[in-house]
Design a protein around this nucleic acid. Structure first.
Lengths: 169, 169
DNA sequence: TATTGTTATACTCTATAACTATA
DNA sequence: TATAGTTATAGAGTATAACAATA
């Protein structure tokens, strides 16, 4: 992408930005994330709800805080997310008989159905992204992303807040 | 919070997520952006201030709204960003004699000095990111990012709102 | 005393509309 | 009437502390 001269009426560009991996990663990462949010909105889900629903499908019976920590939200925020998903009939709280303070989370039938629809939409989005890349490019990109993630200690499956907590406490 | 040893307490992972380019792009893009914010904080700048300062260095005399549009912030937000940078002595507003409604923005000497320090820090960050990649990987990554940006019509140098506006003028 | 879920509060970001002074 | 900058306000989103039930 060529850097244009500053002519009248031409958009102001930040020189060199498009050659920066850091800058482009920020921009594209944010754009992809926004696009994913748009896709999910068709199912009347926000990304956070999708992540929780998806995680509970894969780990049924976990407590609210176990789920909350895994996606990096505060336990207080988790309350409203679970409220919303419960109101939609996608999951239910059951008191854990072994520890009555905890609410074990379980998906309902319609919750599972919604998760499948949403995850299919996510897969389509993934295919759209990959459609502009060769197989080799996609592999290199994914590998590079993992290397950069490691560099900063970016937690992938687990959010930074909980990773830090698990480490020093 | 005493997390001593969790037997089955391994963090809950979202299966398949690490193989998704979309998911990894969101995560890594956000991480890189956060890291950049940390680096800038050493200079007591937030990213938005840096972008404005940098853009004004490259395009002196532009109006607040021209700059605002280029980084995708509302004109009302631009006021406080310029206030802050002016308070730090990095730039100054001068009334445009051709149109007294406009404030032309100019960097000061110390503003230019700070921009150079900050942009050097940005370059170091860029080098750190690139240090974990081969030259070929870096090229492929950058190319892939541009292709994905094009896919969604992600505005890179210029924000969508101003790009549209500037077209009809 | 510590922890789970909950509630309440505060603080940041952002989006929007209205106001002023100029055009 | 329209525009540049400003101000004020409301809405998300998030972070934090306090509380009740339970351990």
């Amino acid at each position: 992408m060529a850097v244009e001269k500053d002519t009248e009426g031409a958009p102001l560009v930040m020189q060199g930005a498009t050659e920066s991996i850091g800058f482009m990663l920020s921009k594209v990462g944010n754009a992809v994330s926004s696009r994913f949010g748009e896709i999910l909105s068709e199912y009347e889900l926000v990304p956070r709800q999708f992540f929780v629903l998806n995680l509970i499908c894969q780990h049924e019976g976990e407590s609210q805080q176990a789920i909350a920590g895994s996606i990096g939200v505060a336990k207080s925020q988790m309350v409203s997310v679970v409220d919303e998903l419960e109101a939609k009939g996608y999951l239910e709280r059951r008191v854990n008989p072994d520890d009555r303070r905890q609410h074990a989370l379980f998906v309902t039938k319609s919750g599972k159905a919604m998760q499948e629809k949403a995850i299919n939409a996510a897969r389509e989005h993934e295919l759209a992204v990959r459609s502009v890349l060769s197989k080799a490019e996609a592999e290199t990109l994914l590998g590079a992303l993992h290397k950069i993630a490691e560099l900063d200690g970016t937690p992938i499956g687990v959010h930074a807040s909980i990773a830090a907590k698990l480490k020093d406490e």
